[in-house]
Amino acid sequence: MSARRIRISLEVNGEPVEAEVAPRQHLADFLRETLGLTGTHIGCEHGVCGACGVRLDGAVVRACLTLAAQADGGAVETIEGVSDSGEIADLQAAFEKRNALQCGYCTPAMLLSAQELLLENAAPSREEIRDHLSGNYCRCTGYHAIVDAVEETARQRRGGPA
């Protein structure tokens, strides 16, 4: 392996980060191992399960298919960031109330995907919710409760009763 390192400069959860990374290191490993942001989970490392979803410049991406070097100059948001900012507090509360997670391993990326949908569609149908979340594998819940929680959050954001 080449010992060459790439210098990157990016923003992670609103904080500036400077680092030297191996060319082959993917963003999920960088976030988890270098920055200690272990809320980003690794499930398959080939872009199918969706557990490693993070926001890069506003779009949810697979951190296992994104090299850390590709994030140079970008802004990354992880579950830790959107939790601390309160951006998805209502969605998280709906997940808790509806028990829309069991082991919780898919949950951080599931929340980011759901938030992505809710930002672009204020009134998604159950089918649209299922379709949008179809890149996020959950082995525990069977999805029904997740769809309920997302639907409920959309309703509340539209001004419906809590």
């Binding site: 942001l37 809320g39 830790e80 997940f95």
Partner: peptide
């Protein structure tokens, strides 16, 4: 659930 929802498990 709180910690799992925040990626703090």
């Amino acid at each position: 659930l709180g910690r799992l929802l925040e990626g703090r498990g």
